[in-house]
Design a protein around this nucleic acid. Sequence first.
DNA 1: ATTATAACTGCGAATAATTTGCATTTGCAA
DNA 2: TTGCAAATGCAAATTATTCGCAGTTATAAT
Lengths: 146, 146
Amino acid sequence: MREQIEYEERLKKSGLKNTKSRRAILDILIRSNQPMAAEQIFFALKEKQIDINLSTVYRTLESLEDKDLVTKISIIDDDRMLFEYNQLGHRHYLVCLDCKKIITVHNCPLGSYEKTLENETHFNIVGHKLYLYGYCEECQKRNNGN
Amino acid sequence: MREQIEYEERLKKSGLKNTKSRRAILDILIRSNQPMAAEQIFFALKEKQIDINLSTVYRTLESLEDKDLVTKISIIDDDRMLFEYNQLGHRHYLVCLDCKKIITVHNCPLGSYEKTLENETHFNIVGHKLYLYGYCEECQKRNNGN
DNA sequence: ATTATAACTGCGAATAATTTGCATTTGCAA
DNA sequence: TTGCAAATGCAAATTATTCGCAGTTATAAT
């Protein structure tokens, strides 16, 4: 449970209060290998017999995002935002356009590119998001012939 | 007006009807150097004395996206989608986190990376989105000292 | 040209995600 | 232990986007 210690420390440092909601939500996000929508988190909490109002889930995610413990993203172009625990050290995602499965990609190909671009544009670049889209092996097989 | 010819041809090939709305909306998107929200497009049309219902703007954008004339994206994590004219040959964006200005980046650093990743993951990768975030020169200057 | 028809549009109402106001509760510093 | 700002629950509001339906238009076939 290394992360648990880690996240309670990060919570403390952030100045946010250490509440049941915050702990429970962080716990779920950390254990998830996929970014989750607010409502998904809400139901995941319910399964653990933890009742937290959906507004509170939203508000909690917002505070956690403010303090950089959580990141808010929109990977697929649908109408809801996803949230993920902000591991220090970033990740990228490979998204299946068919079944919507998301695979985490651990290496980042953008090493020196940001610096080059900073020189060209005079932007101070602080981060990036890279999403790759395609079809996973299973979906390719299943749809063989279409 | 090279694009105008181009987009009317693409419209024809797509099988979509060549209507006032479609032409007007494509025209606005092509002339915009930034991705636009549906409502922004709606108001831009209004300024040109072109009254098109907001629902129609949405529906038009949807059809155009279906036919790959337009791309729908969410660059900034707010609650609305942005739309851009789909130039053949993709682009990336550099977004200022302060003033929200968006700069188009024409070269793509991901050349051979997708192939490597395909071998590793057995995904069939069909595309990607890369957004870079930072602070533009003006905002850096303006906020000097904070 | 005329016409038939599917595609398109306007309008208002519905939907769904997210936010907000307010009264109550809780974590935590003093 | 207490005081108080911060956090929470609940219901209602807000906002982007979609949908149903009735009327209109672009286009292909005559």
